[in-house]
């Protein structure tokens, strides 16, 4: 039996990939979330602020509108521990920028063009993520 979450995962994934395909074929850009956000945050992409700002407006606005239209509330189930939130946020932002990409850039856009760097990065962050969950959930019991 196929679980419903797999179907939603596949459909959602196809939509994510369509967004990335449109960004590439339309604007000639790699749809990498950390690159688009980070370039605005550190000022390195100041000349593209309008394009990137609109991308981010869609990224935040579309889920908001969809939930509003469906009369549903979204739920991230994220921890309420401030120390964990801050530590994890710093690690995610710092690491993704140091590596020049995250799940969308290296994972979706990199693997799909058989980029060795994208495949290596994805293998490493999946491994680190698995170790992190094992350590913080099963050993330390923080999450």
């Amino acid at each position: 039996m196929i679980e419903q979450s797999f179907i939603y995962g596949l459909i959602g994934g196809l939509i994510i990939g369509s967004g990335a395909a449109l960004y590439l074929l339309g604007n000639g850009r790699i749809m990498g979330a950390s690159g688009i956000i980070g370039g605005l945050a550190d000022g390195s992409a100041r000349s593209e602020w309008r394009e990137r700002g609109l991308f981010i407006a869609g990224l935040i606005g579309a889920p908001w509108l969809a939930l509003l239209a469906l009369g549903q509330t979204g739920e991230t189930h994220i921890t309420s521990n401030p120390a964990v939130l801050i530590a994890a946020g710093l690690l995610v932002g710092f690491g993704a920028r140091l590596a020049n990409g995250c799940t969308s850039g290296h994972g979706v856009c990199g693997i799909s063009r058989l980029s060795l760097r994208g495949i290596a990065a994805t293998g490493l962050y999946l491994m680190a993520g698995a170790i992190s969950v094992y350590a913080f959930k099963h050993i330390l019991g923080v999450i």
Partner: peptide, 26 residues
Amino acid sequence: IGSLIFGAGWGLAGLCPGPAFASLSF
């Protein structure tokens, strides 16, 4: 090194940059 650091944080909180922004409204 960046990918290992990123992965550690991703596992700790369960959010990466795209979803962190996509879920900002809720």
